[in-house]
Design a protein around this nucleic acid. Structure first.
Lengths: 263, 263
DNA sequence: GCAAAAGTGTTAGCTATACACCCATGT
DNA sequence: ACATGGGTGTATAGCTAACACTTTTGC
């Protein structure tokens, strides 16, 4: 799938009216968890000073979910990503960019004139997908040659970028609401993790502290988390035990949901 | 908003390529609850022998959520409907109808030739919305003059209609998954209801029986359900007490969710 | 030795669940 | 009178939530 990863490709893309499903795009909110911090993948296009969500278009005869998986695979190098639709953004003021200086930047940086009648300059309906990935496994590859993609902290100092802040917040809200239905720990943590890491993940998502003792007891009461005979090395103070998920038992549990009293 | 409620209007609609956002539609799954039975609004188009979901298109510069509300208002006569996106259906084989005899029926019934290159004959991306309405308040008005709309039981004998069965089931799955976040009782039941009606609603959605005594005690432990000084009349055996929701307290509770142990 | 974080035991109070029994009403 | 569904009390097992104390480790 060649999505024209060259600067001149932008011009070609603009002419490709029949290549893509018209007036429709996909935006991806990719979450990772690293050093006890929630991260989001953001991208910065050449010439623009703000960061936005990585996204792309759907081919004329491509399943939308397949397109989302294709984009995520290209972006992270990962197959079988946990990927879920969370909201359709269909307000009338959604454009390629809502910033007034966009045509100017396109002219200057890409040598492309954006005509106001071109579908590219008109309203987009965007499907928001969120992805949960193992930070340690991701190898970032920007979707085009005109952008750079980086992990950014998910917190109040998230960089500015059009209505994409709204989109990230909606993704987060969806995840919080569905926390008892999402295998969030297994998707965001590496294969081996400490109980404190799992707890801090939940504390971050819930935005409150959880009782250390009761958290561990509850988690271990389900048999899908296994205590390994192994400890994290090279840390200050007492080295904590490592745990891992038993995938088979986790999948069984997924049907019933992941009820925990503090959700 | 004149969406051409005449038979000849279909021809006009097909020419209105610039009137609608291209390649995109909305399908609505409208749930009601009547005589202890879950119902869904379905529509049958002139010339077609199967039932499908009521749906429509989005105007070129219309917010998608606004369009969904417009359609629902037209269909049910109700404002402020509980309406929620639940899934985007974007597979490549979605057409106006996936049945081979569609062009023939259009020719015969509507005197319209469907060209295979016309956007109408090509793949649609459809946003699924589900609505929860008070059955007693709905006044059905078909969206066009070429169809009839009726309440149908939601059960295994749901009529056949293309991939719309999948869509209804996905809507139901979403509702089940979010049951602790949806004010389902308030939206589906009339203002005054018996505790048994509320319980049977939950039993229907969860597809299992709930303990009568414990259900009532749990519901009443939240103060958003009020026992009225009134009984249902004209029923066999002992007349049951009526209850109603305290909207103010219900709205407060909505923030936290509607946790119940049997969910 | 000390500070910091990990690991573990105990308990009071609460909740879920099961079940029992009486009440009101139409036939 | 009786069948049916409504209304209500209680006991128990199990869980939640709070807290206390011990252990391990690097500095």
């Amino acid at each position: 799938m060649n999505l024209k990863k060259t600067t001149s490709g932008v011009a070609a893309l603009l002419e490709d009216e029949n290549f893509f499903h018209p007036g429709f795009s996909i935006d991806c909110v990719v979450f990772g968890f690293h050093e006890n911090t929630l991260k989001v993948l953001l991208t910065q296009y050449k010439g623009f000073d703000f960061w936005q969500l990585p996204g792309s278009f759907v081919l004329k005869n491509e399943d939308v979910d397949v397109a989302a998986n294709r984009i995520l695979k290209e972006l992270t190098g990962l197959d079988n990503i946990y990927l879920s639709q969370f909201h359709l953004f269909g307000s009338t003021n959604r454009r390629l960019s809502m910033r007034a200086d966009t045509p100017e930047i396109f002219r200057k940086e890409y040598n492309v004139e954006i005509d106001k009648h071109h579908w590219f300059a008109n309203r987009f309906i965007t499907m928001g997908y969120y992805a949960l990935v193992d930070y340690t496994k991701v190898k970032i590859t920007p979707l085009t040659a005109n952008e750079r993609v980086e992990w950014k902290d998910y917190d109040s100092r998230l960089p500015e970028y059009a209505d994409h802040r709204t989109i990230v917040e909606k993704a987060m809200e969806t995840i919080r609401f569905q926390l008892n239905r999402i295998p969030i720990g297994r998707e965001l943590l590496p294969e081996k993790f400490t109980m404190t890491e799992l707890r801090i993940l939940y504390e971050t998502l819930l935005d409150r502290t959880l009782n250390r003792r009761n958290f561990e007891r509850k988690i271990l009461s389900y048999d899908y988390v296994e205590k390994l005979n192994e400890r994290r090395k090279g840390v200050a103070y007492k080295s904590p035990n490592l745990f891992s998920f038993n995938d088979e038992k986790y999948n069984e549990a997924e049907i019933k949901g992941f009820y925990m009293p503090w959700l």
